[in-house]
Amino acid sequence: MLKFTLKRLGYMLVVLFIVVTITFFLVHSIPGDPITAMVQDLPEETRTVYLARYGFDQPLGVQYVRFIKACLCGNLGESLRYPGRKVIDIVRNYAPVSGVIGGLSLAIGFTIGILCGILAALNRNKWPDKLIMVIAILGTTIPTFVTAAVLQYLLTVTWPIFPTTGWGQAKHIVLPVLCMCVGPVATYARYMRSSVLDTVNQDYILTAEAKGVSQFRIVTRHIFRNSFLPCITMICSSIAGIFSGSFIIESIFAIPGLGKYFISAINDRDYSVVLGLNIIFTGIYILAMLLCDILMALTDPRIRYSNDR
């Protein structure tokens, strides 16, 4: 298992490096320079000074080497728009906020979704199944901003239980988390349902029944683990999405999260912030993949043993 993890970590570094490189060149292939993009009609002299200050006057190769060096030292650059604001600090300040909301909603959404999926599959074509599937379809089709607006209206205007917007107290967490877990509940319920239906028809379930194993134990010991497997791949991308946050939710509820920051950095053409955040997101995504691989290996012996050798 250790060897497996180390090997995966090695691959990860390679992937990270490639992504960083591609992003760097993509960002720099945008026509025009960042200074002009931000401030038009700048006198030529001022422009040259600014370009020199950020090193944009150097050949691309030199800029790239300098950038990679800085990355290795843990310096992901600083904002062009707001001088002195470092990418690392942005992450440090706003990632935890996104993390709390995203993490909570994913954990809740995932758990409820999986349970609903199992419930639906075991009651196939009966009312619990139909009810859950209708909710799941609504959950996937109704956009979050609609859910958010409706929830805000109901729970802050009609019944004033929670505050509309804001951040800092526990009561602020409820509404955004509620909005954000609708998606995962719907997705995982549908996915788990089809996965369970698939497992239920496997021969080994018949074997278990022929052993006289109780229905409850068949579900917990035989069906759950084997159906859970395909869902793991899906958690991976969800985990990665936690920190990038949800721009929409963060905007609606006025939450100082990373998602909002990322979008505003793009709108501001704050290249170094975009680049820096992208590296962070890539890193998190790759870590999530590793977590997935480990989870998969723990759940499925076939993967575990084929990778050990």
């Binding site: 021969d203 080994y204 018949l206 074997t207 278990a208 052993k211 035989h222 084997n226 012996p301």
Partner: peptide, 16 residues
């Protein structure tokens, strides 16, 4: 007791 035709699919792949 019962034994089935295909032992590959009749045994749970995730249990020893």
């Amino acid at each position: 007791s019962m034994i089935f035709q295909d032992s590959m699919t009749s045994l749970n792949p995730t249990m020893t």
